[in-house]
Amino acid sequence: MSLSIDLSGRRTLVTGGSKGIGEATVSRLVEAGATVMTTARRLPPHVPSGVSENLFITADLTSEEGCRTVSDAVHRHWGGIDVLVHVVGGSDAPSGGFAALTEEQWTRELSLNLLPAVRLDRALLPLMVACGSGVVVHVTSIQSQLPLPDSTLAYAAAKAALSNYSKGLSKEVGPKGVRVLRVAPGWVETTAATALIERLAQEAGTDMDAARQGLMASLGGIPFGRPAKPVEVADLIAFLVSDHSGCITGTEFVIDGGTVPTA
């Protein structure tokens, strides 16, 4: 018997919803009946399916002003919120280990991977607490446990900070009826990841599968044999924000094909 997820009428904000995991999450939650607002720095060529144009908010969440724009939109359109999913994140830091990371690069990584969640939670969690219910999901990363020192040290540190913050927040607002959870993906084969595989294949003069296997090996291997798909992460998030997970809070769910070698 399939598990039916009904999110009818749930007022939901998904950050970073124009591509990758964010776009897949928007689609999955809309499919389950949620009313979804989402964000990105720029309006994409096509607003994500199921999201009305007035609920797509263009904002740079690395700034206080951008987060304020989004929280103001939630207050203006709904006056409350039921589900908040923090997907926005990423890294553009150079390789070269700790010495290659400048003050500006550390600030960018924290501003993208930690502070948007802190700021939006601070603005919107009181609405959930006032109602005595709500769900917050922070999308972290297995790199909080398995950092790649050459290229993602600052990103991994920011995600570790997000995970720790999320755990502490769950203890504070759990008694007030608000659930706080973490989803930690490993490598997810998004459109950007596919483009990277294509580039690596061209540079090495090999095919896509060989390039994919080489990239997985560089990450320490994926025992399951393939990266996750964005829709698989979205399905997990949909389950966690639904009533089926009504007694789950304060914990992290890893979706990495077995990459993390310990439980």
Rank of each mutant, 00 (worst) to 15 (best):
G221V: 09
G205A: 09
V188C: 08
V188Y: 01
L169P: 06
A217S: 15
L196E: 14
P175Y: 11
S170R: 00
A204D: 14
E198I: 05
L196Q: 14
L196W: 01
F239D: 02
Q213E: 15
P227K: 08
P223N: 13
A193G: 14
S166D: 07
K176Y: 03
A184M: 10
E189P: 03
A217N: 11
E203S: 12
L200I: 03
P230Q: 03
K167G: 00
M208C: 06
L169V: 11
R179A: 06
R182N: 13
L236N: 08
V173Q: 06
A228L: 07
R179C: 11
G214E: 04
E189W: 05
G221K: 10
V183W: 10
Q202G: 12
V173D: 05
A184K: 05
A195Y: 03
K229M: 15
R212S: 09
K229Q: 15
P230M: 10
G220V: 10
G186A: 05
A228T: 11
L169D: 13
I197W: 01
V231H: 10
A204T: 00
R212H: 03
S166L: 09
P227T: 12
A211L: 09
A217P: 01
T194N: 05
T191E: 15
A238H: 03
P227Y: 04
R212F: 03
R179L: 10
R179Q: 09
S218I: 01
G174P: 11
S166M: 11
G186H: 04
A193N: 08
